[in-house]
Computed example of a mutant assay.
Amino acid sequence: MIDIHSHILYGVDDGSESREMSLEMLRMSEASGVTDIFATPHVNRKGLVPDWTDLQAKAAELQRAADETDIHIAIHLGAEVELNGATMDLLKECKDDRAYCLGGSHYVLIELTDRTRPNIAENMLSTLQLRGYWPVLAHIERFPQLLEEPDRLLGWIEKGILCQCNTGSFTGYFGPKVKERVRTLYQNGVIHLLGSDGHRTAFRTTDIREAHEELERLARKEKRDDLWQTATANAALILKDRVCYPDVPDHWHVKKRGFFSRLFGH
């Protein structure tokens, strides 16, 4: 498994608080079957932009510490870039250094917020693509505005924009509404990448074993391909900086709710 979204770098954002916590988060990842993990600290949140060179040094230091303590996992650097007006100034052009991109690729993890309007986001994403970036939308199940316009989402995917979801959303960690949304996304086949979005060791962890079991159960129930394997294969393309061409549904399918679900609101 390749974890595409995590906050394992300590002392950078609201993620890991210490070197020891970061190493424990990596141990949790390794125990979950993760071979590669992307460190994606928050960038451009509340106007804060960590220096890319500093982030590179922190990621390299953490990799050395992991190697020295026999944690067999590869750390790749990226960022979770909040999409707003300042993003256009930050990501001016996808140059050779690929600052804030995922693992030195053209891919960049983009975070939408409650304040984001889909029509404005669409223009910004198109501009980023023209500048050479390949956007990946972070945890889109937590962005209900977009799911209210599923045809727009399908249009974005047709233009090459990928969608990442958090593993904890499948287990209900972020609440029943988010779980319902991620199930809808799953049933429509528009989840391309998975990430723990791990922040700490006591909560929002990088332990994704429960989610793996839930995804296996869903694959059997829905008779769909194993998303765990599909997401890993797509993440491997990011590591190779190759274009991912996911299938796009012909239309958006809304699963009908059963009588008791409608009656009791579950």
Rank of each mutant, 00 (worst) to 15 (best):
E158F: 00
E141S: 04
E80R: 05
R131N: 09
N119V: 06
F203Y: 08
E20K: 06
A66F: 08
R220N: 13
N44M: 09
L77Q: 03
Y186A: 01
R131A: 04
T230C: 13
R19H: 15
A202R: 14
K240M: 07
I208E: 05
N188S: 12
E216Y: 02
E210W: 01
K95N: 15
E148F: 06
T35E: 13
G265H: 00
L227R: 06
D114I: 03
R220K: 15
D3S: 07
S32F: 05
Q229I: 14
V43Y: 01
E148V: 02
S18I: 08
H76C: 11
I120G: 05
W134C: 11
L109Q: 10
I4C: 15
R152W: 05
G168K: 11
R115N: 11
G78S: 13
D226K: 14
D250S: 09
P249K: 12
E214K: 15
S105D: 07
W156N: 04
K221Y: 02
F260G: 01
K159D: 13
I71C: 11
D97Y: 03
L193I: 05
L263T: 00
G175T: 11
N119P: 01
S169K: 05
H212I: 04
P176Y: 03
G195E: 08
S196I: 04
V243I: 06
I208N: 05
N188P: 05
L91G: 14
D197I: 02
L55Y: 08
I238D: 03
E82N: 14
M1N: 03
E20C: 13
A74W: 04
I2Y: 08
L162F: 01
T230P: 02
T201E: 12
N44S: 07
F38G: 13
D241M: 00
G168L: 12
R217Y: 05
S18D: 15
A202V: 04
L162S: 10
L48F: 13
I157E: 07
T69Y: 01
R257F: 02
R19P: 03
A121R: 02
E93H: 14
L218E: 11
E222S: 10
L125D: 06
